[in-house]
Design a protein around this nucleic acid. Structure first.
Length: 173
DNA sequence: GACAGATGAAGGA
DNA sequence: TCCTTCATCTGTC
């Protein structure tokens, strides 16, 4: 990972997310506190950032990220996403992440389906690994991937987040 | 190389 | 059904 990412917080009522941008687009996103879901105490709100020294382009991306994230958290589909920079991943991971982005709002797929989609039907476990390596959760909807038996499987940000996100999209397990 | 993993399918109780 | 076992593929160390 490079160090020259620009890091900007996104305050939401679910906590403070952290977005990192490269020159190509949104490259990483952290959940509040950088770990598993924690019930928000009170509004962590507050003003976003000092955007003075942020390049205009990244400010645009950040605005799009913020809107998309808040839409998803509010149970609405995200319309405009900023460009995503997947260059930190391997070719296989990028293929999986691209496939994840095609899962529409409120829909789910299994790890096996993703594997078949990218033409590697038996690479199901590897798909799980790629999902876990997903640097941009929520916007790259790894939470919409379930195990074949409709069980949750796992989630890098914590299963509570996965449940929460799916519930807000109206997905019942 | 060896190993672990966010799986899936099959077989047995 | 539920549990266990095993095949399979990729990433990481």
């Amino acid at each position: 990972m490079k160090n020259n990412f620009l890091e900007l917080p996104i305050p939401t009522r679910d906590g403070r997310f952290l977005a990192r941008y490269s020159e190509k687009g949104l490259a990483e996103m952290d959940f509040p506190n950088g770990k598993a879901f924690v019930a928000p105490k009170r509004s962590e709100g507050g003003p976003a950032v000092k955007t003075n020294r942020v390049p205009a382009q990244i400010r645009d991306w950040h605005r799009a990220t913020e809107v998309a994230l808040k839409n998803i958290l509010a149970g609405r589909a995200a319309k405009n996403l900023p460009p995503l920079d997947f260059s930190g991943g391997t070719e296989f991971q990028q293929a999986v992440w691209r496939e994840l982005r095609k899962i529409s709002f409120g829909k789910t797929k299994s790890y096996g389906e993703i594997a078949r989609r990218i033409g590697k039907a038996r690479a199901v476990r590897a798909v799980g690994g790629a999902c876990g390596a997903n640097p941009i959760p929520v916007l790259v909807p790894c939470h919409r991937v379930l195990a074949a038996n409709k069980k949750l499987g796992g989630f890098g940000g914590g299963l509570d987040w996965k449940r929460t996100l799916l519930a807000r999209e109206g997905v019942s397990l």
